[in-house]
């Protein structure tokens, strides 16, 4: 069941993940694949894309970065928000051990993925990166799903002192037949793509672009001819590199 028009849900639970990130559980469910996103509407404010952290109940993790997310953080339990979707292409779940790498709120789609992978009996290791220990988000969800969680903080306040990509390199060396799934800042994704191509490992990541329609018509989420809302937001590293180097784009989902 996909929602074409924004549909109202009530907030059933709110949880502070960090000083700037909050998780909202809603009073309803939709059917979605990990990596898919919804367009969240607050009347008279705006409508913006957010990854699903879970589909039953619908769960969103929202980082406060500007006017819309600020308004979302003012919502209380019992308030309503509206959403349409789910949209886009999620992660292809491969039958190999999984290494998940999350930077900041990039943990959102990966928490959903981790739960599904674990339910399918896949072994999951997670490299979770943030500036400080208090900025690490959704760590409990990964733990509760049965993942081995490896935090990395830039100030060394928890786990590895440094970047999630350092931890990822170690996890990849320890699991040579693993597949990598990532979401976070693009500099992190670039670095991971390199790590994986050196090792000949499959890698998929979820990308962000400005979105208007979410429907694959307005063109605002263009990334070198790829539509992040429709062809993505999850891409293989090869797709993104291919589009950038402008190897003639095939017609459909690239």
């Amino acid at each position: 069941m996909a929602l074409d028009l924004p549909t109202a849900f009530r907030i059933r639970d709110i949880r502070d993940e960090s000083p700037t990130v909050r998780t909202f559980a809603l009073d309803g469910a939709i059917q979605a694949e990990p990596g898919q996103f919804v367009m969240v509407w607050l009347p008279r404010v705006n409508e913006k894309p957010f990854s699903l952290v879970d589909d039953a109940p619908i769960t969103l993790t929202i980082a406060r970065v500007g006017p819309f997310t600020e308004a979302a953080h003012h919502l209380r339990v019992g308030d309503r928000l509206w959403l349409r979707g789910p949209y886009g292409r999620g992660f292809d779940r491969l039958a190999r051990p999984a290494v998940l790498v999350a930077g900041g709120y990039g943990a959102a789609p990966l928490a959903f993925l981790a739960r599904r992978l674990r339910a399918e009996g896949v072994q999951v290791s997670v490299a979770l990166g943030a500036k400080r220990a208090c900025d690490l988000v959704l760590m409990d969800r990964f733990r509760d799903a049965g993942c081995s969680v490896h935090p990395a903080t830039e100030d060394g306040s928890l786990g590895h002192k440094g970047l999630a990509t350092d931890v990822a390199a170690r996890l990849l060396d320890a699991n040579p037949d693993a597949a990598l799934y990532a979401c976070g800042p693009e500099a992190m994704l670039e670095r991971l793509a390199r790590l994986c191509s050196e090792r000949g490992m499959p890698v998929q990541f979820s990308m962000e672009r400005m979105m208007k329609c979410g429907l694959g018509v307005c063109g605002s989420c263009d990334h070198h001819g790829l539509l992040v809302c429709r062809d993505g937001p999850v891409f293989s590293a090869d797709q993104v590199l291919g589009a950038r180097e402008n190897s003639p784009s095939p017609c459909g989902q690239q």
Binding site: G216, V217, C218, G219, S220, D222, H224, G225, L227, A243, N246, P248, S249, P250, C251, G252
Partner: peptide, 25 residues
């Protein structure tokens, strides 16, 4: 016009998808 016509790459993609002509946004 206004559908996928926002970049050169998207216009090229639609042409490769079989359009006889393409219109920019």
């Amino acid at each position: 016009s206004g559908i996928l016509g926002t970049s050169a790459e998207l216009l090229e993609r639609v042409a490769r998808c079989g359009a006889g002509a393409v219109t920019s946004k």
